[in-house]
Nucleic acid binder design. Sequence first.
DNA 1: CGCAGTAATTGAATCGTTTTATTCGAGCTC
DNA 2: GAGCTCGAATAAAACGATTCAATTACTGCG
Lengths: 359, 359
Amino acid sequence: MAAVNVRDVAALAGVSLGTVSNALNRPERVSPATLLRVQQAIDRLGFVRNDAARQLRAGRSRSIGLIVLDIGNPFFTDVATGAEDRAFEEGFAVLLGNSQGNPTREAAHLDLFEEQRVRGMLVSPVAEIWPQLKRLRTREIPAVLVDRAISDTSFSSVSVDDIAGGTLAVTHLLGLGRRRIAFVGGPTKIRQVSDRLEGASRALDGVNGATLEVLGAQALTVLEGRRIGEAIVARRPADRPDAIFAANDLLAVGLLQGLSMLGGLRVPDDIALVGYDDIAFAAAAVVPLTSVRQPSALLGRTAVDLLLAESHDPGGFEPQQVVFTPELVVRASTGGGAGAGVSAGAGGGAGDLAGQELT
Amino acid sequence: MAAVNVRDVAALAGVSLGTVSNALNRPERVSPATLLRVQQAIDRLGFVRNDAARQLRAGRSRSIGLIVLDIGNPFFTDVATGAEDRAFEEGFAVLLGNSQGNPTREAAHLDLFEEQRVRGMLVSPVAEIWPQLKRLRTREIPAVLVDRAISDTSFSSVSVDDIAGGTLAVTHLLGLGRRRIAFVGGPTKIRQVSDRLEGASRALDGVNGATLEVLGAQALTVLEGRRIGEAIVARRPADRPDAIFAANDLLAVGLLQGLSMLGGLRVPDDIALVGYDDIAFAAAAVVPLTSVRQPSALLGRTAVDLLLAESHDPGGFEPQQVVFTPELVVRASTGGGAGAGVSAGAGGGAGDLAGQELT
DNA sequence: CGCAGTAATTGAATCGTTTTATTCGAGCTC
DNA sequence: GAGCTCGAATAAAACGATTCAATTACTGCG
């Protein structure tokens, strides 16, 4: 009883196997009576379609590949969640590939998924893989780039506007009346960092008396943030900024520790603080962090939409570059909630660590 | 040029298609000369095997299904990383399914993956799905349970010994000379919580003068930890515990905030603190947290190993229950590093948030 | 020189489904 | 009642790789 196939079902139902296929795929072409008989036979035998045969005949599969830089990174985890969710709605399975920033692994995953004849690939590329992606396209396997500024507009892509995010953050700080703004982030060769800085500096345009100081960071880590925070504390009060925009939440959390817990400054009273990414911990920090949130899961969902759209109409489809605008989640670190208090900030939102279950 | 198949390759190489297949799968049966010609033809045409046809013939696929409760949970992310990594080494693709704790979604994923004829499934089950898993087994699709205590030993499983973890944590605290231990955690109907408590209480056996107080928590969150921390601060000094074992790191971080930052107590001087899970943030807390680490990625790798072993020998395979022992990572919150300082603790380790890249 | 034995290659059958052209009837019209 | 159409069901031909029994080519040996 290892393998139940359409033939067995047909035999039990007393019809031809073509009819079984029709019952499965175009029920309206089959008379109600036989449809019922076929259904019963299927249930009785516990028949499950063999997708391999199906896709062999159809020439296309019902799965899509997702290759990410690092599945451990919460951003990509969210992207994957969104993509899987959307794909599942459409009856597609998602093949997960973790390139770990390794071009060799990335290429190998591309090959592996091509053998599986995936319907298309979602890729957040490590290396320059245009040649490979173009080759895939000649095989009618479309690709959608995730979170990469892309020069080649012949591919669809989804990304978030980091410049807008930077502007959002600093405009908020200016709106609170702060004028001595500091940007903490680096290395600037990371596009996201330089874009966020660019956005920050744009926000200053036309605001008189406002200054933007750039404090370079070696890495986007908590420790680095703490170090910089302590350096700020060491300054004369008049030389300190009255607001900081950190390039990501890890830095922001470190800054918070350095400034407030170790340095004795008050956040947001003395210095207001905005982070970036809205990681789960942002809401749970001692002073809940105001942060710029990226619609990560939506990125994943949208990428799948673009992929399927292109797959349905390989010829006529026009590649699209979808750029999402991030959103500011205001919490206590800029005075959004209770002063320096305990209550959760305004945002809240779905992914908060607060609601997370135990491992 | 949409589809290049073995026949095309055979034609170009001037051999029969059987030979091409041999060249692909059993190169030693083919003369070096023809092997070379076939290789060249493959390269020239850019031939890529069609896995659908392959698996149709073979009756088995080269992919495995992974169904997790919540891919957003760092524990499962690590499990997934380990599983994907191991599977990839073996040339297998991983189909990712996120059940989101929803039994309906879980069942649907099971069906979807069964249609894909996966080689086997890794499942961290939401509901009681034994009937479905047993049905799968009659189809030679083995399943391995992930992180579930399992009564039915006819399935392989991988899990972590939470009792041992609890003992580990509290033994460490006792070793530091602490005697008034508090366990913070709940709800106890979660098996992991009750097991950790059980382990904690076992550690006390035979240690005279040691007491274990249980402080129930409504949820395993930062906020709840903070609340409990403040409650402890409100006690008379003599009534306070001198060490706390928290059921997970979120609680521990909250406790740290409540005790130390808001309450003025010193960690570890006044109260030593141990968490559980060793989440990325544990090392980055103001006082780096001592924590119990679970070998999550190893769980994933091992699960894949068990799955493939069973798949290779469906008849003779004996299901195994692999239970991992967690490991204690000592950091400053129990005096492991600098007193209450800034330096990272002992553990460090691969997954630290410290090294994490920007989104 | 012929024969056995091995190595290399071939061709046909097969996996399970979908699809397409075809057949079979029944019900209608004129 | 002959000719039609239309609905329902069928049989056969794909899809692309693998495998196995059969064939050919070749080597060495007696």
